[in-house]
Design a protein around this nucleic acid. Structure first.
Lengths: 222, 222
DNA sequence: AGACAGCCTCTTCCATGCAACGAAGACCTT
DNA sequence: AAGGTCTTCGTTGCATGGAAGAGGCTGTCT
């Protein structure tokens, strides 16, 4: 992204998204356009345009004549989204196996090893970073830009809950095992095995998130 | 959808989408906001808001300070989209196999038979209608609203080319065979077989579309 | 006291106005 | 005559104003 954003609504959309993802704007909360416009130092027009976009991205819900509220992610929706992401990442895996360059494989293996080291050092942020890098590389190697974009879009939708969900120790170990299976499948260029593993990996992640969510719900209980 | 749309921008967005899908606004063409706003009898504001949404839906591209142009679907993009839709419909098939009610299976089989009859009568519109209904029913039975919505969204993006692409006789026959395999897999509740068949079906469709597109390009050649 | 109606205020929604960026044409220069 | 530059027009982008809907408040009636 070496192109600076010059349109205000686009910029505002990005800021708003960040606000929502960070949780500063809580789910269910109203999004007053005037107040936020003033906060960003822009008029209400680009703000409204940004809201339309965020509505399509499912970050906010637009109630006609009643303004926008931050969408509250239900457990049902999460349960729906994870299989979708599993299918998409599975596809990415299959494609990646077909196109994978040796260079990329080496790169992934290096990332994997770095990630393992983070795991052993109990360095969660580092782990998460490398984890993310590996998955990104798989999509990269898949060579399907639309697929990457779509996945990214869905990722954003659940990012808020993903942040809150820290793996349990067992869950973490499970994730590591998944990753080792992935590496094996990649080396063997076994697309369907990789797809299977990735789907399973996503299912595990879904379990983690769901458990975290359940606890949150128990805590808040609205 | 028994809720009438009351917001102008939403209405305008729908109209614009229709205009683009129908081809009245040709790919690559500029979308003058003032002229279209006048045509719809609204001011430029809701028009602009609609354009932002359509931009996110990939119907138009927004060039800052230069307005919007209708996105031209490249062959590369189509080649990217079909595998994605294949993966999603495959997932739908797997889920549907798990949840399928007998009633729904009967319904699908009835649709299938009606479709076959249309085929034998060489009734393409009828065939297409029933075809669509079957696929919709599969998504319905999958019971994953987000999945249906996402698929629908992608479907819209390629609808323009799908309209233009009429199957060749062989392609049509191939599609029929795919459908019969689908029915068998559904009856056997064999999720992975159904998924495989659906993916294959999508690949076949992709071939048809690609061939049509190739011919179009040869014809126009810009 | 509770409930309904009417009013008032706040917010959203759409229209219009003004500034700025882009593109095309005319003019000047070489 | 050709190329470049300046100007001008058209369009986009953002701000603001006016109208209408929504929710709350108060006052009155039952």
């Amino acid at each position: 992204m070496h192109i600076v954003r010059r349109t205000l609504h686009d910029e505002v959309a990005g800021q708003l998204r960040a606000l929502i993802i960070s949780g500063e704007l809580a789910p269910g909360e109203k999004v007053p356009e005037a107040a936020l416009a003033e906060r960003f130092g822009v008029s209400r027009t680009p703000m409204r345009e940004a809201l339309k976009v965020l509505a399509f991205e499912n970050f906010v819900k637009l109630l006609p004549n009643k303004g926008a509220i931050v969408t509250r992610l239900t457990r049902e929706e999460i349960d729906e989204l994870f299989p979708i992401m599993g299918a998409l990442e599975g596809l990415a895996g299959e494609l990646a196996c077909r196109n994978l360059k040796l260079k990329d494989l080496v790169h992934i293996k290096r990332l994997h090893e770095a990630m393992i080291q983070c795991y052993e050092r109990d360095d969660w942020p580092g782990y998460a970073k490398h984890n993310r890098a590996i998955h990104e590389q798989i999509f990269q190697s898949a060579g399907n830009a639309s697929l990457s974009q779509l996945f990214e879009q869905l990722m954003l939708r659940i990012r808020s809950v993903r942040f809150t969900a820290r793996s349990s120790p067992e869950g973490w170990l499970e994730a590591i095992k998944d990753h080792e299976e992935m590496i094996r499948a990649l080396e063997a260029r076994d697309g369907s095995a990789l797809a299977r593993t990735l789907k399973q990996h996503l299912r595990h992640k879904a379990d983690v998130v769901e458990r975290a969510l359940r606890e949150m719900e128990r805590g808040i209980e609205d």
